[in-house]
Design a protein around this nucleic acid. Structure first.
Lengths: 335, 335
DNA sequence: CGATCACATGGTAACGATTACATGCGACAT
DNA sequence: ATGTCGCATGTAATCGTTACCATGTGATCG
């Protein structure tokens, strides 16, 4: 591999001068600059980011640890993050935890060893020790979507509570009274927030939320199917199910279909996180949409502020309900 | 940040010994080993992968450049790749080209500067100069799914031709005669292969493939919608459309829905790449499924062979047709 | 008993860049 | 003419590791 030394030799200058040209330092005579530049292209020289990082103590790279790449919400988030980061001159390295604590630890560790400049994380349930270490070591960090309570780390997320209230009102107005929810892992903030908001909303309509109507999910398809099966095996099954993420909604549909049940006649269905496919499912699914791209952009903004020595504060956006036909036919349904 | 030097001081040994412990070199007395190890945990020392890479000339990192993360096929591929790589002790850095040549160049460049050990790429249309450079510089590289003809680089992909023939037979048996296709960018191998296979299959049934029945797509949702709109505006629209990826199929559905047309009565629809949502769309969509996970695993296997100095050869798997209801009702429809 | 050997450990030169400091040189003012 | 200044460039230290070579210390053996 050709190094800065080879370029220096070819151009008949010192490595310092080559470095100056490469970092366009002003104090370089125009003709030497062109001489160096042509040596660079002649040799096909490519700067070694590893060496540069070692020397400068910065990698211009952000780490992003998400709980599940296969979840379209996180895919979109990742894309937005990469976009924003690239726009600011940073790269992004993604670690997919697959909703698995040990994997999350693994990725945080390797990212830290790579000396990424900052860390964006949407923590899974459990396995927070590595993250606490990182915070203690003052690694610039921002939580996005989910967070770990009690840590002094800015959080960029969307508040889903108003939308959950809207959803419950929507279901109530369509005559549903036995409302069930499939929650996420108990220790994720989003899981809790969504279940709590659901419970509050039900209360405000005078409806109970019995324990058997709270399904235990893990944000993965299969758990949505299982929870739905459990609901359907109940003596008095619910007449509406709210899946707190889109993958579990998919699982719920799988199970309903398997049993030959129709949505919304036999069971109403709604999901947290809207995705393009929900428009074309049978029936189109009512969902709560997060401003995903903005979430990603704001999170990157906050993180880069931290990385570059400024301060950053938490950001709360809001999610909104998008009603379609999966809860029943209503008058004013927006696409 | 604490370095190996600090650990050495704390443990009362030299940096060489610490390094030996960290890389579990045999020649270290058990008691010094434990002394060093406890110093490591006391100080919360984390090895600096940047320095290590500079010294060892390897990063134990693979680059993966894909054409579009938002496409579930590539998301799944990326997951499989990361999985396989992690199992072999490698990390993966993903670059998303968004079907955009310039972005692909950008990612290849930064990955190369990062000195990744090997590159896995599913090239977009155009912008191949950086890739040619990399090949010339003997960067270990493997193409996955798509490839650039004429380069001596192993290709891991699934042959879709038999499945396309099956699809055409299926459509023909259901009475469809005016078959159209929405292709990908003309320069992608997958785009070409799929259109060519479609044409051949049509010929074997004595059907023509007029130019106006070949839609120009770019593997993105919107182009699928546009191509479908163009088909529908024809004096004699096709009665079946084959979208050569799932995103364009989504676009086609968007347009059909917008015009209030029904699938399959008004228009049959099939897609390349199967995804979980296709089971639940209205109607469920007939698709050609690739062995995505295996594609990822085999590609990583081949690349690591190259990286570690062995040789690697191309791998061709096969895709298979999964019939559902979007082409019409048939007797034996599989899941 | 001295030579040999294995083993544990230490010293130190790279790896490829950046950057503070030194140097040389022409221009300019006095 | 000479001192001063600023500009272009070179020299060398440094970042945190690894790996080669040297060294010291017992143990083993003829």
């Amino acid at each position: 591999m050709t190094s800065i030394k080879d370029v220096a030799f070819a151009a008949g200058v010192s490595v310092a001068t080559v470095s100056r040209v490469l970092n366009d330092h002003p104090a370089v005579r125009p003709d030497t600059r062109t001489r160096v530049l042509s040596a660079v292209t002649d040799l096909g020289y490519r700067p070694n980011a590893v060496a540069r990082s070692l020397r400068t103590h910065q990698t211009r790279t952000l780490g992003l640890v998400i709980s599940d790449v296969l979840n379209p919400f996180f895919t979109e988030l990742a894309r937005a993050v990469e976009d924003a980061a690239r726009g600011r001159g940073y790269s992004v390295v993604i670690g997919n935890a697959d909703e698995h604590a040990a994997l999350q630890e693994h990725h945080v560790r390797t990212l830290l060893e790579r000396r990424i400049d900052g860390l964006l994380v949407s923590p899974t349930d459990g396995g927070t020790s590595m993250i606490r270490d990182a915070v203690a070591a003052e690694t610039p960090m921002v939580f996005v979507d989910r967070w770990i309570p009690g840590l002094d780390v800015p959080v960029v997320h969307a508040d889903g509570r108003p939308a959950v209230h809207d959803l419950v009102a929507h279901l109530h107005s369509l005559g549903h009274r036995r409302l069930a929810i499939i929650g996420g892992p108990s220790e994720t903030t989003t899981g809790n927030e969504r279940v709590e908001a659901f419970r509050e909303a039900l209360e405000s309509h005078g409806l109970p939320l019995p324990r058997r109507y709270i399904g235990e999910g893990d944000f993965q398809t299969e758990s949505g199917r299982r929870a739905t099966a459990a609901f359907l095996d109940l003596a008095e099954p619910p007449d509406a199910v709210f899946a707190t993420d889109n993958l579990m909604a998919l699982g719920a549909m799988d199970e309903l279909r398997r049993r030959g049940l129709r949505v919304p006649q036999d069971m109403a269905l709604a999901a947290f996180d809207d995705i393009p496919w929900f428009l074309h499912t049978d029936p189109p699914i009512t969902a709560i949409a997060q401003p995903t791209a903005e979430l990603g952009h704001r999170a990157v903004g906050a993180l880069i502020d931290l990385v570059e020595g400024r301060t950053a504060s938490s950001v709360t956006l809001t999610a909104r309900l998008v009603t379609r036909r999966s809860c029943g036919e209503s008058e004013g349904s927006r696409s």
